[in-house]
Simulated assay, not measured.
Amino acid sequence: MKQTPMTIRGAQKLREELDHLKSVRRPQIIEAIAEAREHGDLKENAEYHAAREQQGFCEGRIQEIESKLSNAQVIDITRMPNNGKVIFGSTVTLFRVDDEREITYRIVGDDESDIKANLISVNSPIARGLIGKEEDDVAVVKTPSGDVEYEIIKVEYL
């Protein structure tokens, strides 16, 4: 199985979610199932069926997170010397030429991406257009609405 790149922050968030699911959510669901069982006939017991369904979702998510963490290649960008090159995990400040806007993105793994928080997937068109470039380079990113030109202002390894 191939390893998936992940930042330290991304791995930490998954571990926290996993811990919450195992230590808080799982016991709550087990309690809800036990309570619902006390109500008698399980065939027509909506609370029981709802709790069992939640248990299925919870256990599925636990397995998914454990799998992601076992296949993760956690990359600590802060331990790398900053040579001004855009790499996985770097934070890049760009100048978008067409509308003269400045924007900052962090290049992260697929599971960590959140465009509202300016976290873009390493597999996104923007990240693919930036990786390997350096400060002061111009990157042309192909988008469905046409090519977008970015000047790379600053590359940080935060």
Score class of each variant (00 low, 15 high):
residue 32 A to M: 12
residue 33 I to W: 08
residue 36 A to E: 06
residue 36 A to K: 01
residue 36 A to I: 03
residue 37 R to W: 00
residue 37 R to A: 10
residue 37 R to P: 00
residue 38 E to C: 03
residue 38 E to M: 13
residue 38 E to T: 07
residue 38 E to H: 04
residue 38 E to K: 14
residue 39 H to L: 14
residue 39 H to E: 14
residue 40 G to Q: 04
residue 40 G to V: 03
residue 40 G to K: 03
residue 42 L to E: 14
residue 42 L to V: 08
residue 43 K to P: 01
residue 44 E to K: 11
residue 44 E to F: 09
residue 44 E to N: 14
residue 45 N to A: 04
residue 45 N to W: 01
residue 45 N to R: 05
residue 45 N to S: 03
residue 46 A to T: 11
residue 46 A to L: 12
residue 46 A to F: 08
residue 47 E to Q: 10
residue 47 E to N: 13
residue 48 Y to A: 04
residue 48 Y to F: 15
residue 48 Y to W: 12
residue 51 A to P: 04
residue 53 E to W: 04
residue 53 E to I: 00
residue 53 E to H: 13
residue 54 Q to E: 15
residue 54 Q to M: 13
residue 54 Q to T: 01
residue 56 G to L: 03
residue 57 F to H: 14
residue 58 C to Y: 07
residue 58 C to P: 03
residue 59 E to F: 05
residue 59 E to Q: 14
residue 61 R to T: 09
residue 61 R to A: 11
residue 61 R to P: 10
residue 61 R to M: 06
residue 62 I to E: 09
residue 63 Q to N: 12
residue 63 Q to E: 12
residue 63 Q to C: 01
residue 63 Q to K: 14
residue 64 E to Q: 13
residue 65 I to V: 09
residue 66 E to K: 13
residue 66 E to I: 09
residue 67 S to I: 04
residue 69 L to I: 05
residue 70 S to F: 00
residue 70 S to G: 02
residue 70 S to E: 15
residue 70 S to N: 12
residue 71 N to V: 05
residue 71 N to Y: 10
residue 71 N to F: 11
residue 72 A to G: 06
residue 72 A to D: 08
residue 73 Q to N: 15
residue 74 V to E: 15
residue 75 I to S: 02
residue 75 I to R: 10
residue 75 I to F: 09
residue 77 I to E: 07
residue 77 I to H: 07
residue 79 R to Q: 15
residue 82 N to M: 05
residue 82 N to Y: 07
residue 83 N to W: 02
residue 84 G to N: 01
residue 85 K to I: 14
residue 88 F to P: 07
residue 88 F to V: 05
residue 89 G to A: 07
residue 90 S to E: 04
residue 90 S to F: 02
residue 90 S to P: 03
residue 91 T to A: 02
residue 91 T to R: 15
residue 91 T to P: 02
residue 91 T to M: 12
residue 92 V to C: 03
residue 92 V to H: 09
residue 93 T to G: 01
residue 93 T to A: 12
residue 94 L to Y: 07
residue 95 F to H: 15
residue 96 R to M: 12
residue 97 V to P: 05
residue 97 V to I: 15
residue 98 D to T: 07
residue 98 D to I: 06
residue 99 D to P: 00
residue 99 D to N: 15
residue 100 E to F: 05
residue 101 R to V: 06
residue 102 E to K: 13
residue 103 I to Y: 06
residue 103 I to S: 01
residue 104 T to G: 02
residue 104 T to H: 09
residue 105 Y to T: 00
residue 105 Y to G: 00
residue 105 Y to M: 03
residue 105 Y to A: 01
residue 105 Y to L: 06
residue 106 R to Y: 01
residue 107 I to T: 10
residue 107 I to H: 07
residue 109 G to N: 04
residue 109 G to Y: 04
residue 109 G to D: 08
residue 111 D to Q: 07
residue 112 E to W: 06
residue 112 E to M: 02
residue 113 S to M: 10
residue 113 S to N: 10
residue 114 D to N: 15
residue 114 D to M: 08
residue 115 I to N: 10
residue 117 A to Q: 14
